[in-house]
């Protein structure tokens, strides 16, 4: 598969009164054509900052891309001019935001907002753009598109607004769609509809999606590959099956076992102790070590590199070092791994 987007050793800092917050500390990942890459992690792990930097939407003045490259179509977006970025935003790369209540302009009709990128990037006339907008609304499942076009955001429900936001994002058939928690603010039933819609449209428009979320259930539903972020780094990356059935990093173990399963009985939920690291003073060694029950001496001294598990699966934990002791992951993870091994045997 062809690489569409390459992020290489990205470092981003925010300058605050308290000092320099190192929000992203060396992130590498690739996005392939037609795939959905999910980025998971808790608040403050740097998932939104990473994707905003791809769009260059970080606040000017106090944020800084310290080093690293974001390669798209042979061009480094990390150093691209604002003028260049304006041509890319909404055309080649577009974004869906978390809160559909605030991401639309309340003083503009829906139609005008959908037509905006079409007129700007595709040089369509107003009437052509309007025709196209009707089609887009129809595509995202909004009935009576001609009437709806003339309405304002407040006349739409949350789920409908998110459909409109998706229509705007897809108006120019972008190559990359970044979805930052697009369903977090929605109800479960509506969430299901929006996820189905996104998957359906992805096939029709052949776009790649970067999907940010902290809901592992949603990840299991939409993702082809998953990157787990912690403390400004990617700590594990692999295919969706590898991450859910054969996780290697203790943080991923914690995330998976802290969710109740529907058939779980009265046992206590697994809890990741402690709090996320303070990126104002990033810790020496592995940032997860203070919360990691499996931490070894070396975790507090040196940062683990990415160890290879399979061609598609990498994890940054010293536990994968050949000299590391064998440890037992939490029970829920062991069950999943057993299932994974069984399915591999079945394939062979």
């Amino acid at each position: 598969m062809k690489k569409l987007l390459e992020v290489k050793d990205l470092h981003i800092s925010f300058h605050t009164f308290a000092g320099e917050v190192q929000a992203i500390r060396g992130v590498d990942f690739d996005l392939y054509e037609g795939e959905t890459l999910a980025i998971v992690g808790e608040s403050g792990s740097g998932k939104s900052v990473t994707t905003k930097s791809i769009m260059r939407l970080l606040p000017q003045g106090n944020s800084e891309i310290k080093s690293g490259e974001i390669l798209f179509n042979g061009e480094n977006l990390a150093t691209a001019s604002e003028k260049k970025m304006q041509k890319i935003r909404g055309k080649d790369i577009s974004m869906i935001f978390q809160d559909p209540m605030t991401s639309l302009n309340p003083t503009m009709t829906i139609g005008k907002q959908i037509m905006e990128p079409l007129i700007k990037h595709r040089d369509l006339s107003k009437s052509e753009a309007s025709k196209r907008a009707v089609k887009l609304l129809d595509l995202v499942g909004i009935s009576k598109p001609e009437t709806r076009l003339k309405q304002y955001p407040h006349q739409f429900s949350g789920g409908m607004r998110q459909r409109v936001v998706i229509a705007i994002a897809l108006a120019c058939a972008p190559k990359v769609l970044i979805a930052d928690e697009p369903t977090t603010a929605l109800d479960v039933t509506i969430q299901g509809q929006i996820l189905d819609l996104m998957k359906d449209l992805q096939k029709k428009i052949e776009t790649s999606i970067i999907f940010i979320t902290h809901d592992l259930g949603v990840v299991a539903n939409v993702a082809d590959r998953v990157a787990v972020m912690y403390g400004g780094k990617i700590v594990e990356v692999g295919t969706v099956d590898e991450i859910f059935y054969n996780p290697q990093h203790p943080y991923t173990w914690g995330l998976i076992s802290s969710m109740p399963s529907l058939d779980s009985q009265d046992e206590e939920l697994f809890v990741i102790p402690g709090t996320p690291p303070d990126l104002l003073h990033p810790p020496k060694g592995d940032a997860f070590a203070p919360r990691n029950p499996y931490a070894m001496k070396i975790d507090k001294e040196e940062e683990p590199p990415m160890f290879k598990v399979s061609d598609t699966h990498y994890a940054a934990t010293w536990l994968l070092h050949p000299d590391a002791p064998k440890v037992e992951p939490p029970l829920a993870v062991q069950e999943r791994q057993a299932k994974f091994r069984a399915s591999i045997k079945g394939d062979k």
Binding site: G217, D241, M259
Partner: peptide
């Protein structure tokens, strides 16, 4: 039927 579960196979 709409609850997303952390299980790709099921999803």
């Amino acid at each position: 039927s709409a609850i997303p579960l952390p299980d790709p196979e099921y999803e």
